[in-house]
Design a protein around this nucleic acid. Structure first.
Length: 288
DNA sequence: CTTGGGTCCTGTGCGC
DNA sequence: TGCGCACAGGACCCAA
C-alpha cells in the first residue's frame, strides 16, 4: 500500500495546501495513532507556517517556521482528505458527510490553513506522527537507521553488494529491510525481483555483480514508473471526496497468482509463496 | 550482529 | 444468514 511512490504522491498532493501556509487550526481526535502523539501536538502545530515538505523513505517531513518538523508516516491505511476550507464543521466535509454530529470513522487529525482543510484518516492506525527538531530530523529514532534512498546515487550495485555481502537472508527479506534500502515494501520488492529475474528466495549474499546491477536498475524503474503513475492520478485527485488515494496501478506479478507470466517469451505462471509471513509473487519460469 | 517470529489494527472476503 | 478465520502489511520489539 503506501510504499515510497504512494508517499511521494500523497506529499505532492498535500503540498499545495500546506506549503507557505499558516496552520490556523489543528485538532487531534485521539491521543495516539500507532504510538502516542507528542505532548500538546495540535497546539504546537497551530499558528505555525509550513516552510516546505520533503519525503524520506516512506516518511513525510513538513518543516515548520519554529525550527521543528512535523513527521508523518502513513502506515498501512493512512491518507489525507484535502478540500477547501469553509465554515462547515469538519465532520461535514466531502465524503465525511455523516450522521448527525458523530465524528467520521477513523478521522484522527485535522489541519486547517487559511483556505484548505486536511483530514488525516487511518483505518488501521498503523500510521504515526511526531514533532522533531528540523536540524536533527535525520537522527529521529524512526529515521536514524534508514538506508539509502533507492532513487539516489547512493543506492548503486556496489553499495548494495556490500550491504548484502555474506547475508544469508533471502533477497526478498533483505530488500524489505529499511536499513539496506529505504522505501520499498512488499509490492515493489516483488515487482523489482521479477523485473530483474531474481528468485525471491535467493540468499542475498549470493547475488552476482550482474544481478546486483539488474536489481538496482529494476528497483529504480519500478519506483519511478509508479511515481509517474501517481503523478498523473493527482490531476483529478479531488473527485467527490478529496481523498488522496492510492492510485490504481497495475503490477506485473503482485496479486496475480496463477496468471500467466507477463514476460515476453516466458511461458511460466505467477506463483505465490509466503516468506516471513508476507506473500511473494514470482515466476519460477524466468526468475532464478 | 543476524535472523525469525510476534504484535499491533480493522475491514474484507471466503468457506461452511 | 451468520460465524470464524485468513489475510492485508510497515516497523517495532524481543528472543535465540
Amino acid at each position: 500500500m503506501p510504499e515510497l511512490p504512494e508517499v511521494e504522491t500523497v506529499m505532492r498532493g498535500i503540498a499545495p495546501a500546506l506549503t507557505g501556509r499558516r496552520i490556523e487550526r489543528a485538532e487531534a481526535y485521539r491521543p495516539d495513532l500507532r504510538w502516542p502523539l507528542p505532548e500538546r501536538f495540535a497546539e504546537r502545530l497551530t499558528g505555525r507556517t509550513v516552510l516546505g515538505l520533503e519525503r524520506r523513505s516512506k516518511y513525510i517531513l513538513a518543516a515548520l517556521d519554529d525550527g521543528w518538523s512535523w513527521l508523518i508516516h502513513l502506515g498501512m491505511t493512512g491518507r489525507f482528505a484535502v478540500g477547501p476550507r469553509d465554515n462547515a464543521p469538519a465532520e461535514q466535509l466531502g465524503e465525511f458527510v455523516h450522521d448527525a454530529g458523530r465524528l467520521p470513522a477513523h478521522d484522527h487529525v485535522l489541519v486547517e490553513t487559511s483556505d484548505h482543510r486536511l483530514i488525516y484518516n487511518d483505518v488501521r492506525r498503523f500510521g504515526a506522527m511526531d514533532l522533531t527538531p528540523t536540524a536533527e530530523a535525520s537522527t529521529h529514532k524512526l529515521l536514524a537507521t534508514l538506508g539509502p534512498e533507492p532513487l539516489s546515487d547512493a543506492f548503486n550495485p556496489k553499495a548494495l553488494g556490500a550491504a548484502l555481502e555474506h547475508r544469508i537472508v533471502s533477497v526478498k527479506a533483505a530488500l524489505l529491510d529499511q536499513k539496506i534500502v529505504a522505501g520499498l515494501g512488499n509490492i515493489y520488492v516483488c515487482e523489482a525481483l521479477w523485473r530483474s529475474k531474481i528468485h525471491p528466495t535467493r540468499e542475498a549474499g549470493t547475488l552476482t555483480a550482474a544481478e546486483l546491477k539488474r536489481l538496482v536498475t529494476a528497483c529504480k524503474e519500478v519506483l519511478t514508473s509508479a511515481i509517474e503513475a501517481g503523478g498523473s492520478s493527482l490531476r483529478d485527485y479531488r473527485h467527490a471526496d478529496g481523498a488522496l488515494g492510492y492510485f490504481q496501478h497495475s503490477f506485473s506479478v503482485y496479486g496475480r497468482e496463477s496468471e500467466p507470466c507477463p514476460r515476453r517469451g516466458c511461458s511460466g505462471e505467477v506463483e505465490r509463496l509466503v516468506q516471513g509471513g508476507r506473500s511473494s509473487f514470482f515466476c519460477a519460469g524466468c526468475q532464478s
